[in-house]
């Protein structure tokens, strides 16, 4: 029987598909939500929690990324679990230990009822290769960042239907983009669904989205291969390694500036000072809270950043 498995952060989607189920990244429905969460710190976790508890999200079980994501997810995941929904907790290693991650993947495989279709590993691998090609397309100024972001952010679950998803990404238009500056987005993704379009209006071409880029990491054909690949999931590891990865990507993509998106009451906000010290680029920090259209104050920041990059020495 095919079940819908809610996931709260990056979980290898190839494993869920290989076990005969479909993943649903519960974050991907948050930006379109108009719910007012009852008690909240970070709106991302509070909203997926309430969407599940109110029955607005149709899932059969939940996999909570408890290590390598946030403690809000751990608590909100337990609230969901107390409602009776089968819940599994997944922990990434902080020290990139392959054996530890292998044991976590083995335990997740058990929760999902075991691998039934090995072919899915290869199929998802092929899809992710297409994701990497899309990424290249925008870096080479041949695609709008808003189109690429919308596709990449869905690589965490392939919209619960990889075949339909493949059709969708095959139809992303080739477009020559014009812009005034190339920028990178680091941190968690913005909670505002129109954010990338707004940035485009101000002449900012986003050539790197840190977290969605992590989603298109190529996994292996078995648990060992997945463990080797996903152990480097940067959000779960030490910030030193993350800075190294980000700096490498910024240089490769020839960015003019960096935008750090932070989420109100998210612990990642504390990383802002570190990034400002270690990323030697014009740097803009923005913060969001509840979903909706990008607020005017935030637009002012984007506009000012764009002006600064364009006219300042």
């Amino acid at each position: 029987m095919t079940n819908t498995i809610g996931i709260t952060a990056l979980i290898p989607p190839e494993l869920i598909y290989a076990c005969g189920h479909r993943p649903l990244d519960v974050n991907n429905v948050v930006p379109e939500s108009s719910l007012s969460p009852r008690s909240k710190l970070c709106a991302w976790t509070a909203l997926w929690r309430d969407l599940i508890l109110t029955g607005s999200l149709d899932i059969d079980s939940l996999v909570v990324v408890a290590g390598g994501d946030c403690h809000n997810a751990l608590v909100d995941g337990q609230k969901v679990s107390l409602s009776g929904l089968p819940t599994h907790y997944f922990f990434y290693p902080f020290d990139t230990n392959t054996q530890y991650l292998h044991s976590q993947l083995k335990s997740l495989e058990g929760f999902l009822g075991g691998i039934k279709d090995h072919k899915m590993f290869k199929y998802i691998y092929r899809l992710k290769k297409k994701g990497l090609a899309l990424e290249k397309q925008r870096v080479n100024d041949n695609a709008r960042a808003s189109d690429i972001f919308s596709a990449l952010i869905c690589f965490s679950d392939m919209q619960s239907d990889p075949y339909e998803f493949e059709n969708l990404i095959d139809n992303i238009p080739d477009t020559d983009v014009e812009y005034s500056s190339r920028v990178a987005m680091i941190g968690v993704p913005p909670i505002y669904p129109d954010f990338h379009k707004v940035a485009e209006e101000f002449g900012l071409h986003i050539v790197y989205d840190e977290l969605p880029y992590e989603f298109i990491r190529l996994g292996g054909n078995d648990l060992q291969g997945l463990a080797k690949s996903y152990k480097d999931y940067s959000f779960a590891g030490p910030i030193k390694s993350r800075i190294k990865i980000i700096n490498h990507e910024l240089q490769k993509r020839r960015v003019d500036g960096v935008i750090h998106y932070t989420q109100f009451a998210c612990h990642h906000t504390l990383e802002d000072e570190i990034f400002r010290d270690y990323l030697d680029y014009p740097f803009l920090t923005v913060q969001g809270d509840l979903p909706g259209p990008t607020p005017e104050q935030l637009k002012l920041r984007l506009e000012a950043f764009s002006e600064m990059l364009e006219i300042m020495p």
Partner: peptide, 12 residues
């Protein structure tokens, strides 16, 4: 900060 084109706004 004019030295590195960075700015912060407090408006919340």
């Amino acid at each position: 900060d004019l030295r590195n084109n960075r700015f912060m706004i407090n408006d919340k």
